[in-house]
Design a protein around this nucleic acid. Structure first.
Length: 104
DNA sequence: TCTTTACTCAAGG
DNA sequence: CCTTGAGTAAAGA
């Protein structure tokens, strides 16, 4: 995978998400002029680059986390923790999208 | 070429 | 609340 690649673009976009904000998979897809919501998640999963790319800031359009690093609930929990740490409020397993969504 | 996928929306139960 | 089904596009085998 190199630059110009779809997933590379996704990563670049995710890196641009400021702290205290989140983005949705759909939003990222829209920013890339595509409707491939799934491909966005795919790119993150394959790369799964928690250092360079803050994957935890990318969530579902419902405010749900969706998934994180493939496995069950542990990773998701960590993701929630990270989000809360950045100032994002979480209610009953959901992020308040209305307040914290970041639009590109 | 076919399958899988961290998605999303709409509809039905 | 849940499950399907359709729509979509990239990576992997």
């Amino acid at each position: 995978m190199r630059k110009e690649s779809f997933d590379y673009k996704v990563l670049e976009l995710v890196k641009k998400i400021p702290e205290g904000r989140v983005a949705t998979y759909g939003g990222i897809a829209g920013a890339l002029d595509t409707k491939a919501y799934r491909a966005v998640g795919q790119a993150l999963k394959r790369n799964k680059n928690p250092v360079r790319v803050p994957c935890h800031r990318v969530i579902c359009s419902d405010g749900k986390i969706g998934g994180y690093c493939g496995k069950g609930i542990k990773n998701v929990r960590m993701k929630y923790s990270l989000l809360m740490k950045e100032g994002i409020e979480i209610e009953q397993g959901r992020v308040d999208l209305k307040k914290f969504i970041h639009r590109f």
